[in-house]
Nucleic acid binder design. Structure first.
Lengths: 206, 206
DNA sequence: CGTACTTTTGAATCGCATCAAATCTGGTGG
DNA sequence: CCACCAGATTTGATGCGATTCAAAAGTACG
């Protein structure tokens, strides 16, 4: 994890008021790094510029459950006012991540109503995305979940895979074996194509 | 649906600045009423004082999927800045619901930083609740989902059931048959008790 | 009383989890 | 360059649990 960047992601630059840009610090994280763990006190917010981060908690039997698989945008935005984190953030591929102190965000937000509105808009979008994730997990067949994901998140039926299919399986709430079989089956049926770092729907004529 | 109340729920009174209290309008809705439907333009926000409302969308095969089962608090808060609703809101039991115009909320929020912060806090809590819902839906067995729900939402292992078990089954993403069987089994094992309008965990010595 | 809905139980089927094992892959060190 | 290892990928066999379809009994309400 080495810092030094000054370039800020476009989405982030639009969200934050100019005064905050200088307070951002972009670093490179490698696979296996941890942004924070359960119980830590939130000191900074993390914005994923590129790469992939998993938010996960340990289930009742100790098996990790994926709450969020983020490849761009803020992670754990809801912890802005929290005393401690309620999940772990694990970097699963080499990623560029910008951090900014919670205190700086807080003061800027109370002083700048426009920024507060922008932040609320970001939270609203996150809420909708999460509701879609719930909708997705309510589907029982793996194929339905995958196609739902590609329809709602993939632009033009194109779903980037920063890490392998395994992290995707976690997000879909299925075992990696089931996902592999599902992908293979869709591929054989000419409905899906595997490209180097992504999945691509084919024949979107429907 | 008849209006006329002036009394506002405690949680709502704490969230809203005093100036907005007078602009609230509380009504009684009956089972089957609709607060809004997919495609409607959000004109007002709805706060459930008592009763039960289901947020749902139609799945790919036309089967309704429950996005949220609310018995208190705002419904579809994320639609504050939206052009249109992305789900239906259906009242499933006689409910008391307060509505307030979106425009009033917007202007109050930009003028009052404290209120904006309070609203952000509400959104943060909602985000966390949704992440728990995702965590819940990632469990494969019905029993695990039910116990997870009672552990995270039920105060002291007590889970209110405004409507019957059927709406609960929808929230858990399982068929009502599976839920009935699960409840019956837990009851036989002395781990759960059915009380008039709720479920109650027994022997919380663990 | 009749209708609509919830609740309940039963049987058959399907899909996924699980366990197991083989192959492939990238990266490390000799 | 090659041996080697850790992890990802892939395929197979088996069992369990939920869905599905079906039907009956209970319940609220006009």
């Amino acid at each position: 994890m080495k810092t030094g960047f000054t370039q800020i992601h476009k989405d982030l630059a639009e969200l934050l008021p100019g005064a905050l840009h200088a307070l951002c610090q972009t670093s490179t994280y490698k696979k296996g790094d941890s942004l924070f763990a359960v119980g830590d006190k939130p000191q900074a917010m993390f914005f994923i510029e590129s790469g992939e981060v998993l938010l996960q908690r340990l289930g009742p039997q100790g098996d990790p459950i994926v709450l969020q698989r983020a490849s761009r945008g803020f992670v754990a935005e809801a912890s802005l006012q929290s005393v401690r984190y309620h999940c772990d953030a694990r970097v699963v591929v080499r990623s560029h991540i910008t951090r900014i102190a919670v205190a700086d965000l807080q003061s800027a937000m109370t002083a700048d109503p426009v920024f507060a509105q922008a932040w609320i808009g970001m939270l609203n979008r996150e809420l909708k995305r999460l509701r879609l994730q719930c909708e997705r997990l309510a589907l029982n067949r793996v194929e339905d979940r995958l196609l739902h994901l590609m329809a709602t998140e993939g632009a033009g039926g194109h779903l980037p895979l920063g890490a392998g299919l395994k992290s995707l399986a976690g997000q879909l709430g299925v075992t990696h074996e089931a996902l592999y079989r599902c992908v293979a089956q869709l591929e054989k049926a000419q409905r899906l194509q595997r490209v180097p770092q992504a999945l691509q729907l084919v024949g979107g004529s429907t």
